[in-house]
């Protein structure tokens, strides 16, 4: 079965198979150097711009702001969850995250 992935409502959501799964306005914890120099960086996601799947990992292109240093920037390939047997399992924003490299595996 193919997975339907899209952003919705002006980037408020990532929809997976027509179900609103990941919301903006959560604070995501990113490892040092992936977004800014803060360690770790607590980044508020303000909008999803695009979404894609890399292997089994759903990755988002988003816009966010660091709550400590104020850096506002785009985030490429933020992993927001996994597809397992056609079901989506969202990651917890509070868990420290890495960004997915273009070739699809963790650094």
């Amino acid at each position: 079965m193919s997975i339907a992935l899209r952003t919705l409502d002006d980037g408020a959501w990532i929809s997976v198979n027509d179900s609103r799964q990941v919301s903006v306005s959560d604070v995501w914890t990113l490892t040092t150097g992936t977004f800014c120099d803060c360690s770790p960086a607590y980044v508020l996601l303000e909008a999803f711009v695009d979404v894609d799947v890399d292997g089994s990992i759903v990755v988002a292109h988003a816009v966010g702001q660091c709550l400590e240093c104020g850096t506002r920037d785009s985030i490429e390939r933020l992993p927001v969850g996994r597809i397992v047997n056609d079901d989506f399992y969202p990651y917890d924003p509070e868990d420290v995250q890495w960004l997915v490299e273009p070739d699809g595996e963790r650094p």
Binding site: L8, D9, D10, G11, A12, W13, R20, S23, V24, S25, L44, E46, A47
Partner: peptide, 9 residues
């Protein structure tokens, strides 16, 4: 706001 809106923080 977040009472009903998807976008609001």
């Amino acid at each position: 706001g977040t009472e009903f809106c998807s976008l609001s923080i």
